[in-house]
Computed example of a mutant assay.
Amino acid sequence: MKVTQAARLPVRAGESPWTPEELAEVRGLLEIEIEVRKAELRENEDEVAERLTDPVEGAGDDPADVGAKAFQREHDLALAYNTRDLLAMSERAIERMDAGTYGACESCGQAIGKARLQAFPRATLCVTCKQREERR
């Protein structure tokens, strides 16, 4: 991203404008996270596929084993859904960088804050809007 494009991203009062280096660092972290999440999803899908194709999986299980396996499946699915959500949030953050809207709260339009985005690059809401959302 060019200097002028990075500097145009919203920041809170008292914060210095984004530099291309700062934005590149945040983008790099997001890109690494995207690759890690994609690898996690592939691994999870491979494990599930392996279990589904095992012809003796579950043969002769007692009710406790069946329940434990069902619980494990539900746990694995919940982890996969969470991983997909995090992946989508990271990809959305990069899209917002490319569109020049990174750093603007999706609720009120005010700046999210550079420090918040450096700590949590996937943030889409300013602190005030996030607190309001969590109280609901």
Rank of each mutant, 00 (worst) to 15 (best):
Q5F: 11
A6V: 05
A7V: 02
L9Q: 09
S16M: 06
S16Q: 10
E21A: 04
R27I: 01
R27V: 06
E31G: 03
I32Y: 08
I32S: 09
I32W: 08
I34T: 14
V36I: 15
R37P: 00
L41C: 13
R42S: 14
N44K: 08
N44I: 07
E45R: 13
D46P: 03
E47F: 04
V48N: 02
A49D: 13
A49P: 01
L52Y: 06
D54M: 02
D54A: 09
E57N: 01
G58F: 00
A59M: 05
G60I: 01
G60K: 04
D61N: 01
D61I: 02
D61R: 10
D62W: 00
P63E: 15
D65R: 12
V66A: 09
G67P: 00
G67C: 02
K69E: 11
K69Q: 12
A70C: 01
F71I: 01
F71L: 08
R73D: 09
H75R: 11
L77D: 03
L77G: 00
Y81H: 05
Y81N: 00
Y81A: 04
Y81W: 03
T83Y: 03
T83N: 02
L87C: 08
M89H: 09
M89K: 13
S90W: 08
A93N: 04
M97G: 11
T101P: 04
Y102R: 00
G103S: 06
G103M: 06
G103R: 07
A104Q: 13
C105W: 10
S107G: 10
C108K: 09
G109I: 14
G109Q: 13
G109S: 13
A111W: 02
G113I: 01
G113N: 03
K114G: 05
L117C: 12
L117S: 14
A119E: 12
A119V: 12
A123I: 05
A123N: 03
C126D: 15
C129N: 10
Q131A: 14
R132M: 09
E133L: 10
E133A: 08
E134H: 03
R135H: 07
R136E: 12
